[in-house]
Design a protein around this nucleic acid. Structure first.
Length: 516
RNA sequence: CGCGGGGUAGAGCAGUCUGGUAGCUCGUCGGGCUCAUAACCCGAAGGUCAGGAGUUCAAAUCUCCUCCCCGCCA
């Protein structure tokens, strides 16, 4: 069973922002989950590096487009390294292999009779790399997204005959799981229902692009070549890049995760292009929401941009991952609120989970010779915490399968809450003072330690770092990245009498003195 | 203009399809405990469910109207 998933290939216009990090983090959690379940995962990310916008940005910075792309693309790779993103492939559309794939793909599309010449007239937004629908006679129209003047274009371009795929696309987007979340499907349906129009796939006078074979002076429209990056990414670097090899390397993808703004490209244009080239279609496109900050759109003009770099440095991987994935329903728009961020991280991670491990380990070490107490009834699957753990496992798995990170996170938390409650009810600190209670206390502490082992395991896809620290604190070996995970999730596997390391807090509380 | 989503406690959300004590998380307040990272456990306060009209024994939930936010329309 193989599982291929992709982030968007990020446009290298500027350094990475939090939105890109959000998408990538979510994919990372998904990729880790599927690996832990024993699947062969290919997690693709990368950069989209062509187009007039890049060219101009480079010019403005007085560097060559290639230098510009190298630098920005480098910053993406660095950032993902620091976030410990577990991607298997990082594709750059300036990779020479990519040109080969684009050429082969274009040849197929052309052979299908889906490429025609047409004259494109209209107002163009370079920032969007898109033609807009403003009337030709419009006076100095502006891009509604970028608030920048549109440029008038009148040129002969190559067009992809999207209109031929009306029926197929209509059928495709009706598939229940193709566009997720379903709330976004209607938008696409609406768009398709208006009738699909052919779209231009080449530009003239844009030297920073891949040349279109057989059409001098044309370069590919950036979106046309960018989407194909998903294919190039899958092919091994040490073999010739051939479309024929894709089936052996994980195509079709099971999932494209994207921001809601580029849903149309992925749910309409891209499948039609693949159909034209005779390639299988991805199974699912998930368009997640956008992040605001304290209720406001993040933007340079407002100066309220949250830099993923700063977030990482000041708060750490676990905190940010937890907040973004546990608190924002994946798919919906979300608001980053610093107060809630620190509240949740401190409550959930430091207090409920971290302190649970800390307090239990302390008691076990103090009264049971620095080791895991031996257990009798606590290893039985009918123990109340065993039952709670089973429930948590079920919910975590269901959560990940539904791409509902929040559900997975809450289920894990719930287990920790149950364990804390159990401790308070049993009050081992009191019972230790009574005669003849030692074995009962041992049993209780064992059960709670075993529950924390489960918590650590269940946290692995979401918070790999914290998970590893918890396992370490329990005296257990690190989790092998490819699993097996499920076999470890059976009650009573924590070895009794094993030594417990001296406890140190696995999760520090966040104390942010100043705004992020 | 058209289409779609939304307006529920201080904050973020669920509940609306299949009317009938308005629920969750965080925050706030009170109590308990003392093993632990000022932590953990228990409890409480806090809502005219955007506004108006209607249907009904009964409306956050159904109908109509109004206001406000947000998204889509290459």
């Amino acid at each position: 069973m193989t599982y291929t998933l992709t982030t968007p290939l990020y446009y290298v216009n500027d350094k990475p922002h939090l939105g890109s990090a959000y998408t990538t983090l979510a994919c990372d959690a998904l990729a880790r989950f599927h690996r832990l379940c024993g699947e062969q995962v290919t997690f693709v990310t990368g950069c989209d590096e062509h187009g007039q916008k890049i060219q101009r940005t480079a010019e403005a910075a007085a560097v060559s487009p290639q230098q510009h792309c190298d630098a920005i693309s480098r910053s993406y790779q660095d950032l993902w390294d620091r976030w410990q993103i577990s991607h298997d492939a990082f594709i750059r559309t300036t990779d020479p292999r990519h040109q080969q794939i684009v050429n082969q793909f274009f040849a197929r599309v052309e052979a299908s009779g889906d490429v025609i010449e047409g004259r494109q007239q209209g107002w163009y937004c370079v920032a969007c790399e898109e033609f807009k629908d403003d009337a030709p006679e419009a006076d100095a129209p502006q891009c509604p997204i970028h608030q920048r003047p549109l440029e008038w274009r009148d040129e002969v371009n190559l067009f992809f005959r999207l209109s031929r795929y009306q029926k197929e696309i209509e059928a495709l987007i009706q598939r229940p799981d193709f566009i997720l979340p379903i709330s976004r499907r209607r938008e696409v349906e609406n768009f398709v229902a208006q009738g699909l129009r052919d779209f231009s796939i080449s530009r003239r006078h844009v030297p920073w692009g891949l040349p279109v074979p057989g059409h001098d002076g044309h370069t590919f429209y950036v979106w046309f070549d960018a989407l194909l990056g998903y294919l190039t990414a899958l092919l091994p670097a040490d073999a010739p890049a051939e479309l024929e090899q894709l089936a052996a390397h994980g195509w079709p993808a099971q999932l494209h995760v994207i921001g809601k703004d580029i849903l149309r490209f992925h749910a309409v244009y891209w499948p039609a292009m693949l159909m034209s080239a005779g390639l299988p279609l991805p199974e699912r496109v998930f368009g997640h929401g956008f992040l605001t900050r304290e209720g406001q759109k993040m933007g340079k003009s407002l100066g309220n941009v949250l830099d993923p770099d700063v977030l990482l440095e000041r708060c750490g991987r676990d905190a940010v991952r937890w907040y973004l994935l546990r608190d924002i329903p994946f798919g919906d728009d979300g608001d980053f609120q610093q107060q809630r961020f620190t509240d949740l991280v401190n409550n959930d991670l430091a207090n409920t989970i971290g302190n649970l491990l800390n307090r239990t380990s302390s008691m076990a070490r103090r009264w049971f010779d620095d080791s895991v107490p031996s257990a009798a009834g606590a290893r039985d699957s009918s123990h109340p915490l065993a039952v709670a753990a089973e429930q948590a496992r079920t919910d975590v798995i269901a959560g990940f399968e539904a791409m509902d990170f929040r559900r997975a996170a809450e289920a894990t938390l719930q287990l920790a809450i149950s364990a804390n409650g159990f401790l308070n009810d049993q009050a081992p600190w009191s019972r230790m003072k009574q005669d003849g209670q030692r074995d009962a206390v041992a049993d209780d502490l064992y059960a709670v330690l075993e529950a924390t082992r489960w918590i650590a395991l269940l946290l692995a896809p979401l918070l790999p770092d914290l998970s590893a620290r918890m396992l370490d604190q329990l005296g257990l070996p690190p989790l092998p990245p490819g699993g097996p995970w499920l076999p470890l999730l059976s009650w009573g596997q924590l070895p009794p009498a094993a030594p417990l390391p001296e406890p140190t807090p696995v999760m520090a509380r966040l104390e942010l003195e100043t705004p992020l």
